[in-house]
Each structure stands twice: as C-alpha cells, then as structure tokens.
C-alpha cells in the first residue's frame, strides 16, 4: 500500500468510537431485541407471552397463507430481476457507446430518478396505469381498446413499477463493469474475424457478467424487501413479505409474528448476498482479481 499504513490499535478504535457506540445502541440492540421477540408467543387477549418457542416460525413455515406471500415476493423479485437484466444491461451498453455530452446527460436522466422518492415514482405509475390512468385513457381515445383497463392492484402493475424503481441499479452495475473493459478488446475481436454479435456474446458479455450478477443481487434483494411500491400498486390483496410484516405490526398488532417475518426476510437477504459473494470469489477471482 502506497505510503504505508499506520500501526496501532487504540487510535483507530478511538476514531471509530462515536460511530461504534451509535451502531451498537441503535442497530445491534434493536436487531437482537427483534430476534428475541420472534421467539415469543402471542395471544390476542394477553399480548406478548413470556415463554420462548418456535411457534411463530412454525406458523409461517406451515401456513399456506404465508407460503403464498413468500412465493409471490420471491417470484416478483425473480421476474423484476430478469426484466432489469434484459433491459438494463443493453441500455448500459448503449450508454457506454455514446459520445459526450449525450452520455453524461442520459446517465443522469437514467440514474437521477434514484434520488427521487420511491413514493413519488410509484405515484407516477399509479397515475399511468390506473383505470382512469393516462395509458388507459389514451388507448381508449385512440379507439384501440373499448373499455378502460387497469393494471392497478395487479401483479403486472407491481412488476412494471418495481422495474422502473430498480432498473437504474442494474444500469449502474453493468455500466461500472463496462468501464473496466479495455475498449480495444472489441476491435481485437473484430480483427480476428468475429462479427459484431459474436464480439458481444463471446467478448463483451462474459466480461460484464460480474456487473450483471451484482446488479441482479441488488435488484433481487431490494425487490424482495420492497414496501412502498407493492403497498400502493399491489394494495391489500397482493401482499408481499414487507407489507405483511407492516400489517402484523401496525394492524393486527401481532408483533412476535411480524418480527418472525422480518427475521426470515433478513435471513433470506443475507443468504442471497453471501452466496453471491461466494460465487464471485469462486468464479471470478482467478480471472479478474
């Protein structure tokens, strides 16, 4: 490491002390409390019971109601991720081949919405795809459809809105991977006789694969834990894990069950991230390092 690192244990921990105290008090403690809470039983009349047990976990893992919610959530995450790959990765490639200033402009146009509140972006889709929505109205006025249609409160509606909310993350990841690509490799491939398509398939694609994977991981994890968009577009009927936890906490007031759902969501999230890291280490350490 250039310049060399300073030795010593006390100074770095003193420097980190304020943050460390904050994290232990406000992140460590609540997380442990939630974990503990998930093992408490609950009674609608008596509230949280003192005993410990796996009853909540058993309830979630055996009840088909929860199965459906978890399946819907991860199905949603899978579909959103696939669509983000299919449209986000090519868009990143197109962007990388643009010349400035267009490249910077469109990079900001596509990534900028990340800074706009999710609730605003979701509202935009509610306006577009609702029964009185702009899409429906426009198609009607053009005489393309007879009756107004509605994607509000449908699975497809959730997919569209979530793709919109999360696809910038895919573009960022693939874009970052493309930046590491030596621009001459495409020329090298062509000079060896490869067609444009072969260059894309055999030279560009394998090299941006780590970017696609990391983008997929981010999109999948964020979709699986998304709250605002499923709550507004999916509504009461199409519940996902996050909205279910919310309902258990703030509507049914069954906190231990809500905590259990939260813990399971966290475990699933952490598992995805760790298995992704393992995959990257195993597969790409030798090649890209």
């Amino acid at each position: 490491m250039a310049g060399g690192k300073l030795k010593g244990v006390l100074p770095p921990y003193l420097l980190s002390a304020p943050a460390l105290v904050l994290y232990i008090a406000l992140l460590g403690t609540p997380m442990i409390m939630t974990f503990v809470l998930s093992f408490h039983a609950f009674d609608f009349n008596k509230g949280i019971l003192p005993g410990f047990g796996f009853s909540n976990y058993w309830e979630v893992l055996s009840d088909s109601y929860f199965h459906e919610i978890f399946l819907r959530t991860f199905g949603l995450a899978l579909i959103v991720t696939v669509i983000c790959v299919v449209i986000g990765a090519p868009e990143a490639y197109v962007l990388s081949r643009m010349k400035n200033p267009w490249r910077s402009i469109f990079l900001v146009v596509i990534l900028g919405p990340l800074l706009i509140s999710v609730i605003v972006r979701t509202l935009g889709w509610a306006l577009l795809i609702g029964s009185n929505g702009v899409v429906s109205k426009t198609l009607q006025s053009m005489g393309l459809i007879e009756e107004g249609f509605q994607l509000m409160f449908t699975f497809s509606g959730m997919v569209i809105a979530l793709v919109h909310v999360l696809v910038p993350f895919m573009v960022i990841s693939v874009w970052a991977a493309l930046q590491k690509l030596d621009p001459a490799v495409e020329h090298a491939g062509m000079s060896l006789g490869a067609s444009q398509f072969t260059v894309l398939r055999r030279i560009v694609f394998p090299q941006v694969m780590p970017g696609i994977l990391s983008g997929s991981m981010i999109v999948f994890a964020l979709t699986a834990s998304a709250f605002a968009t499923p709550a507004i577009i999916g509504g009461r009927r199409l519940k996902v894990v996050a909205t279910t936890a919310y309902d258990e906490f703030l509507n049914t007031l069954n906190w231990p069950l809500g905590a259990t759902i939260a813990v399971l969501l966290l475990i699933a999230n952490v598992l995805i991230i760790f298995s992704y890291n393992r995959l990257i280490e195993r597969k790409y350490a030798q090649v890209f390092g």
Partner: peptide, 20 residues
Amino acid sequence: LKPNHRGLGIVFQSYALFPH
C-alpha cells in the same frame, strides 16, 4: 470491407487480450 473480413493481424497498444 468490414474489419472482421480483412484478415489482418493486429497487436494493440493495450494488447486487448480477452481477460476472461
């Protein structure tokens, strides 16, 4: 003619090896 049909051998400054 397109570059992939010219049959030239090129050594690039950055080498442009396929890292994967």
